[in-house]
Design a protein around this nucleic acid. Structure first.
Lengths: 379, 379
DNA sequence: CGTTATCTCGTGTACGTTACCGTTTATCCA
DNA sequence: TGGATAAACGGTAACGTACACGAGATAACG
């Protein structure tokens, strides 16, 4: 069979040791090494130990290119997130997909969208486990319902990344979110800069039971007294992320207590509040700060009726979650227990650039806001 | 219970057509196809045309896993950036490296640092071209010097990504930066929110000749009148990114003109200005907004002596630049001509979370950040 | 007509991994 | 002790690509 002589080039490229190196170091076959490294049956425990030791000693790292080439498909990752408050989660999903695209066919995503109010997350995760995905990215709608599923996944050795709400103590890999306390504190600091007498402040949240919301409240209540000399009183309204409830409660608030000096809507459910205030011609007179960005909010921001909104980096959260998971799956390096992003203020001046970068909402430039010709360097 | 029949499943994973498919479709060998696809010598023009047509028809995409497996090394990308104003560029470099790490051994980076004031960029790029890298990420120190080199690289079919300064019209792949105009406009808007009489404003820039700086100036001068009723006068100081010059000019300004109402330092060279103001006990009385974040600036931010700083996402700029370049090299998809990031305000409340995410500067304790002590603007 | 150079193209091997099949060894029961 | 059965392990094809090498054809030259 061997006909001609080979004149292979020396090819002195330093390659990381492969499964073959381990095999010849131990004087066994690559098949055995393969079984040892992948918990496959049909191998003697002693042999397996020797292989694992040799692999560790040589610093073996599986060659993903070869693995992908052989198996024909890459890692599969389930992306489980709610449909509700769609704009935020759509951005998260986009962040995940963008990050995954960088790896081409070597990573495959499977989307599972579920209704936030029907505990659909359980079904989604269960489905993902059935499909034997390599990892799960999850935005828990109701963390209490998600916890057992996350525990189950972790026991199956399937890492779970939580975005937004956490589910700690379940064995989840990492929690990615914006820092809620800082969000509230940032708003407090900004309000303090306004140089106005702020005696009565209203804060709209979803529920005190949600740690995200209670932390935001704690943040602003901790921050405002530090920047404002006057004694402040607080109106805390729990709207439970329900539009009708938000509308009803805000109208009630506005009608009963007149001397409101600032409003902070700490949930994405800000539209009903804004509309109620608009009807009473309060916008523009009372400083309002909201959370997140969605199309209906844009006119309020552009007109200055809403001073600023706290941006929570949905796209980045998705990207970071994916990167952490991918890195763990590939290299085995565990990310930090928790990755917190800084909340940032978005105002009229930087709104359009932000949108252009993250989405396709407002392609229109706002008149004189930007000169038509692009920036061009001239020597 | 398994079926009696061995009958393995057809394993019909839909694979994208490879070089082999093209070969058998045309009835030629894979070697010929290889030569055609890679502009290798020794192939008849007609044959090459047929191959290219067939490749296009079948939607051929090279299998990077196989390519990497065979060749033993991945894409090599040169990262050329200055040493000066180190913190910003260090972050850019970190962003590039982080993004590259996700691809493991399939991407290799080569760092070329050069001195900004000695036209070192030319040598760096030249060196990269010699090494026959697949792409170049460049922060032009002196764009006018970089232009011919970028043109040369583009003619060699080596894509160049510019971060910060642009070199447009040279064939560079894409320009990544923060939107300078928005930066200035954001500061103007924020100052407007302060609700104070701002009649005399000082803006420190590097040079009017740098488009980045002149755009920031244009931004704030366009923005302030929209938020402040009073007529404003402007002091524009060009410090040429030189610390001594900045110190001298700021002291001269502070001593000659007393009624300053706000200061915007639009370059990273803000320390001399702050020190000059501090010596005259002006900090805390006159609102100051700076640019970028570096260790020496932290005390000013934490104490409230600097109200806010405009963050330009150095890490993200690096990451985005890399991703755009990588995507282009792998899929051939050209990114947008220009990718502009939104500038964002960093204040005390979100400073530490930001640092934790991007670097290791910040001290661990959140006690300091959330201590009751604070400095408000007086007067 | 023979020799050689040039151009064009086919062939073979290797990359690291996995799946599958074949082979050897150990265990157990009749 | 023979034979059956399973456990443990060896061997190899194949994934898609890159590249060295050689075969075949054609043309140019003596």
């Amino acid at each position: 069979m061997q006909s001609s002589k080979r004149a292979t080039t020396p090819q002195r490229i330093e390659r990381s040791p492969g499964i073959k190196k381990i095999a010849e170091k131990l004087g066994i076959s690559i098949g055995t090494v393969d079984r040892a490294l992948h918990d496959r049956p049909g191998i003697h425990p002693d042999t397996k130990k020797r292989v694992m030791a040799a692999a560790a000693e040589l610093g073996y790292r599986p060659n993903l290119a070869a693995r992908f080439l052989k198996s024909g498909k890459g890692l599969t990752i389930a992306v489980c997130l709610p449909r509700a408050i769609a704009h935020f989660f759509d951005d998260v999903r986009m962040g995940v997909h963008r990050a995954a695209e960088a790896h081409g066919a070597m990573v495959e995503l499977i989307d599972y969208s579920f209704s936030r109010f029907e505990e659909g997350e359980a079904a989604a995760v269960e489905e993902a486990l059935k499909k034997r995905v390599n990892g799960i990215i999850l935005v828990p709608g109701r963390p209490s319902h998600a916890r057992p599923l996350i525990g189950k996944a972790s026991r199956c050795n399937i890492p779970v990344v939580c975005i937004g709400s956490d589910a700690d103590g379940t064995g989840r890999l990492v929690h990615v979110a914006t820092d809620s306390f800082s969000s509230g504190a940032l708003v407090g600091e900004f309000l303090g800069c306004l140089n106005r007498p702020l005696r009565r402040l209203a804060v709209f949240i979803g529920s005190r039971g949600t740690s995200d919301h209670s932390e935001k409240l704690r943040g602003i209540q901790d921050s405002v007294p530090r920047h404002i000399r006057l004694k402040t009183t607080w109106e805390v309204i729990e709207a439970h992320d329900n539009a009708r409830e938000a509308q009803h409660l805000s109208e009630k608030l506005l009608d009963t207590s007149r001397g409101l000096h600032a409003v902070y809507v700490a949930t994405a459910n800000s539209l009903p509040v804004l509309q109620a205030m608009d009807r009473r011609s309060l916008l523009g007179r009372i400083p309002v700060i909201t959370t997140d960005i969605y199309p209906e909010l844009l006119p309020y921001l552009r007109s200055g009726k809403v001073l600023a909104t706290v941006y929570q980096h949905p796209v980045s959260q998705g990207r970071i979650a994916f990167d952490a998971l991918h890195r763990f799956l590939v290299t085995g390096v565990r990310p930090a227990e928790r990755i917190l992003l800084p909340p940032l203020l978005v105002m009229r001046s930087n709104l359009d650039i932000l949108l252009e970068r993250s989405r396709g909402w407002s392609r229109r430039s706002q008149g004189a806001q930007r000169s038509p010709e692009s920036v061009c360097l001239k020597g």
